[in-house]
């Protein structure tokens, strides 16, 4: 039996969510006796394939083609299907991204597989898997089972433990040639590219802006805090709707699911639509002048105070700490 993990990458660099999923696959392989394979799809990604070996992939399957330079679902479905057809895994695991969420339904359909998204626990049952996943805006969890001949699962960010890489582990790299069909859809452009210097779903520290930031002035304050902390900036839906930040920064049920070591919510009230996307953060700090704000119910450290007074002092304190480090 084989478990195949599709790695996600950005500009040729493998994203940390891939290592998390690969670590889980290695864990599952000890329970099931499976062989762990990885796959990397993209353009100019071949050089990065080796690192997947350090995390325990025995073989890394690469499709490195210019057709995969810009994300569009059809070529990714074609490439992923070609690798799965060649490897013949029983279980296929994916991290989660907007691209993967977009192409996985077609892949499930074309392979006649069983598809389950957003898994936060996976157990090998002997003849299939039992998984847990959040649902209803992460207010409930369901347990699902599948013993289908081909099971495709996407994994919820931050749900699994990433193992330390071992550089002495080497994977065999196999390149696959794929013939791509003519596209029926036409890709035009990417508007409003990510403004954040550090990508939100990769960041160890996230500063989140809520309605309490009020305007561009308030946002600038949080950008400065993010800068001194080496953090990524995120926001609630209200702030996206006000036009202050692009939708790529939205955290929550309809936005990104993040799992940083430290989350600092500034002027964030803590509506379920937002907490559905950040409840996995290791340490949650909330700064809000409303002591009744629901975010205080999940915050490890809840600062009852005005962010316009607290954040400038926090910026200075972090600068001081970095200077002495």
């Amino acid at each position: 039996m084989k478990i195949l993990v599709f790695a996600d990458q950005k500009k040729g660099k493998v994203k940390k969510s891939s290592f998390e999923v690969l670590s889980e696959a290695v864990k599952l392989s000890t329970e099931s006796g499976a062989e762990v394979h990885a796959a990397l799809l993209g353009s100019g990604v071949k050089e990065q394939a080796g690192v997947l070996g350090h995390y325990g992939a025995k073989t890394v399957h690469v499709v490195d083609r210019p057709e995969l330079a810009t994300y569009i679902n059809t070529p990714f479905v074609t490439a992923a299907k070609a690798v799965i057809d060649a490897v013949k895994p029983r279980l296929v695991l994916f991290p989660t991204s907007e691209g993967i969420k977009d192409y996985i339904p077609a892949l499930v359909q074309k392979l006649d597989g069983a598809g389950i998204t957003d898994c936060c626990k996976i157990r090998w049952t002997g003849n299939g898997v039992e998984i847990e996943r959040p649902l209803m805006a992460a207010k409930a969890r369901s347990t699902m089972e599948s013993s289908h001949s081909l099971i495709l699962l996407t994994c919820r960010a931050g749900s699994f433990e990433t193992k330390e890489p071992n550089p002495s582990l080497k994977a065999e790299i196999v390149e696959h040639s794929v013939s791509f069909p003519d596209l029926k859809q036409i890709f035009k452009e990417v508007l409003a590219a990510n403004t954040g210097k550090i990508s939100l779903d990769e960041a160890d520290v996230v500063i989140a802006a809520g309605r309490g930031v009020r305007d561009a002035e308030g946002l600038k304050l949080l950008e400065e805090l993010a800068d001194v902390m080496g953090a990524a900036l995120g926001s609630t839906r209200a702030v996206v709707e006000s036009g202050l930040v692009p939708a790529t920064l939205q955290i929550g049920q309809t936005g990104k699911v993040i799992n940083p070591t430290l989350y600092i919510g500034c002027g964030v009230s803590g509506a379920v639509q937002h907490t559905a996307g950040m409840g996995n953060s290791k340490v949650i700090v909330a700064i809000n002048k409303d002591s009744e704000a629901p975010i205080f119910n999940i915050a490890d450290y809840g600062l009852v105070g005005d962010l316009f007074k607290v954040v400038p002092l926090l910026i200075e304190a972090v600068k001081e700490l970095k200077k002495n480090a």
Binding site: K10, Y71, I72, S97, E98, G99, D102, K184, Q185, I186, F187, K188, E189, V190, L191, A192, A193, N194, P246, A247, T248
Partner: peptide
């Protein structure tokens, strides 16, 4: 217009 990983992707669909 689709919300993608890097920004809003514009596609023309038949």
């Amino acid at each position: 217009k689709r919300q993608g990983d890097e920004g809003v992707e514009v596609l023309h669909m038949p």
